[in-house]
Computed example of a mutant assay.
Amino acid sequence: MPDHGKTTDMALVFLLKKRDHAAFTEIYNRYWKALFIHAFKILKDENEAADVIQDLFTAIWNQSEEWHIEYSLKAYLYTGVRNRCLKAIAKGSRREAFVDELTSAFEEGVNTTDLTLHSQEFERRLKQELQKLPPRMQQVYIKSREQGLSHRQIADEMGIAENSVKTTMHRTLNSLRTKLAPFLTLVLFFMK
């Protein structure tokens, strides 16, 4: 069995397309832990996270001959984990967690393959709902989510208390969850 420990990701992808089990094992060993942590952060459940990783790697092996990765194996794997986590949440009763994760996916610009057709509509609706918010809520949201500022930094910039920033952000996210809930049904329909 060849040792692929120093083989590049794209070379491993090439070998895996030829059903090289050692290449598959190397990809698994290289990424499973980080992918599990990523899944656990989303799902907050070790068993569900482990199931997602198992499902992803089973699909990779079963579809390896048709595998098409144009850019980054790492990005492909993380997107696969996120998509499977979204589906797991959508099938469960945690719609709020689903909306949070879906919102996060689009804010980060992640290409969620299963939702590509609906991402532009979701983004449009998110922006539309943001514009309906009071100016202070918009400012706090933009500074937090788009500019990546901490609550303390936002408070300093806006000349308000840090607790006020936290409260405003909490109210903003709750408002967005409520407003985007009808769109959630549409997304869930296309994810089945």
Rank of each mutant, 00 (worst) to 15 (best):
M1K: 12
H4P: 04
G5V: 03
T8F: 00
M10D: 13
A11L: 05
A11G: 00
K17M: 13
K17D: 00
K18P: 01
R19C: 10
D20N: 12
F24R: 03
F24V: 03
E26A: 08
E26N: 05
Y28M: 08
N29S: 10
Y31G: 02
K33I: 08
A39N: 03
F40D: 10
F40M: 00
K41W: 07
L43E: 03
L43M: 05
K44A: 09
K44R: 14
K44N: 11
K44E: 12
A49M: 03
A49K: 01
A49I: 03
D51N: 11
V52T: 03
V52F: 02
D55N: 14
F57A: 10
I60D: 07
N62L: 14
W67Q: 09
W67S: 01
H68Q: 15
I69C: 05
E70Q: 12
Y71K: 15
S72H: 10
L73W: 05
K74L: 03
Y76L: 04
L77C: 01
L77A: 01
C85I: 09
A88M: 10
G92W: 08
R94E: 14
E96P: 00
V99E: 05
V99M: 14
D100T: 12
L102T: 09
L102K: 04
T103D: 06
A105V: 10
A105E: 01
E108C: 07
E108V: 04
G109A: 08
D114G: 12
L117H: 11
S119C: 06
S119H: 10
S119T: 15
Q120T: 13
R124I: 00
R124Y: 13
Q131S: 15
K132I: 04
L133V: 09
R136C: 02
Q139P: 00
V140K: 00
I142H: 06
I142S: 07
S144L: 08
S144I: 05
S144D: 09
E146S: 08
L149G: 02
R152M: 03
Q153N: 11
I154N: 01
A155P: 01
A155W: 02
D156N: 11
E157M: 12
M158N: 05
A161N: 15
E162Y: 06
S164C: 03
K166N: 09
T168A: 11
R171F: 08
L173Y: 10
L173F: 13
N174Y: 01
R177T: 09
T178W: 09
F183T: 15
L186C: 09
F190G: 04
